[in-house]
């Protein structure tokens, strides 16, 4: 299977008050063509920074990409000039964000903004542009696109705005779509529609999707493959079915147990104790050690490598084979 996007050993840091804090510590991940890859983790795990690095949207300074390669179309995006990057961004790799309303410019109509995305990368006439905008709005399921394209962002609901954002991202038929928490700000009934839309479009247009979320439920629904991130590192990497059936990292198990199920009720949840360590306070050894129920002395001394414990199932845990999902 060909990969559409590959991140290899990415390291990103931010400096704050004269201290350099590494927020992404050697992340590698692969997004195969035509598949949805989920990246799951809590705030501060480095998932958004990883995505922004692909787009080369890390503000430098204070941020800096210290090492790694981002392979797209057989070239390393990190070596691209800003000009080359502009022809990739929004054209061949697109990104959608969590807050659709603040991502749209309030002074232009949504039709103008989608048209802008088209004009930037394609040479087309006014007429073609209009037709394409209508087609895109129809594609993302906005009713009455001829009328809706004349609306301003504040005249649209959150779900509609996110559809517009997706239409903009899709304007140039990108090969890779990065979706950073695309449904977090939306209601559940709208969320289901947006996820279905992303999945349908992937099939229709054959794009690869990197879906970043904190919700394991969403990953279970749409992703083919999952990376679980914790404190700047990938701790588990598996096909979706394998991850949920037989997780091999105690953090993944903790996350699964933290979500109340619709089936049980009013019992204590098996919460993960403590909080995520902040960059700069990472302990020696495994970064999950202080919150881990399976911790042993080795975890405090040596950092576990991301190793294969079952075919195609990688975990960064010394006790990967002792990890069990409570039923």
């Amino acid at each position: 299977m060909n990969s559409a996007l590959e991140i290899k050993d990415l390291r990103v840091s931010f400096s704050s008050r004269g201290r350099k804090l590494e927020v992404v510590s050697g992340v590698s991940l692969t997004v195969p063509q035509g598949k949805i890859v989920g990246v799951v983790g809590e705030s501060g795990c480095g998932k958004t920074v990883t995505a922004l690095s692909v787009m080369r949207l890390i503000p430098e300074p204070p941020g800096s990409i210290d090492a790694g390669r981002i392979i797209f179309d057989d070239a390393n995006l990190l070596e691209y000039s800003e000009r080359d990057m502009r022809s990739v961004r929004g054209n061949r790799i697109s990104m959608i964000f969590q807050e659709p309303i603040s991502s749209l410019n309030p002074v232009f109509t949504v039709g103008d903004q989608i048209g802008e995305a088209l004009r930037t990368h394609l040479k087309i006439s006014k007429r073609e542009e209009r037709d394409k905008v209508i087609e895109l709005l129809k594609l993302v399921g906005i009713p009455a696109p001829e009328r809706r394209m004349k609306n301003y962002p504040h005249e649209m609901s959150g779900g509609m705005s996110q559809r517009v954002m997706i239409a903009m991202a899709l304007a140039c038929s990108p090969e890779v779509l990065i979706a950073d928490e695309p449904t977090t700000a939306l209601d559940v009934t709208i969320q289901a529609g947006i996820l279905k839309l992303i999945d349908d479009l992937r099939v229709k247009m054959g794009m690869a999707v990197l879906l970043i979320t904190h919700d394991l439920g969403i990953v279970a629904e749409v992703a083919d493959k999952v990376y679980v991130m914790y404190a700047g590192k990938v701790v588990e990497d598996a096909a979706t079915a394998d991850l949920f059936a037989d997780p091999k990292h105690p953090y993944t198990v903790g996350l699964l147990h933290s979500i109340p199920d619709l089936r049980d009720s009013k019992e204590k949840l098996d919460a993960i104790p403590g909080v995520v360590p902040s960059p700069g306070d990472f302990p020696v050894g495994c970064r999950f050690q202080d919150r881990c129920p399976l911790v042993i002395d080795k975890c405090r001394a040596e950092e576990p490598p991301l190793a294969e414990h079952a075919p195609g199932h990688l975990s960064a845990c010394w006790r990967a084979n002792d990890v069990e999902l409570k039923v």
């Binding site: 969320q191 394991l216 439920g217 079915a241 979500i259 619709l262």
Partner: peptide, 11 residues
């Protein structure tokens, strides 16, 4: 509403 809740179970 109930059918829209994502379930952490790909099966």
């Amino acid at each position: 509403l109930i059918s829209s809740v994502p379930v952490a179970d790909p099966q």
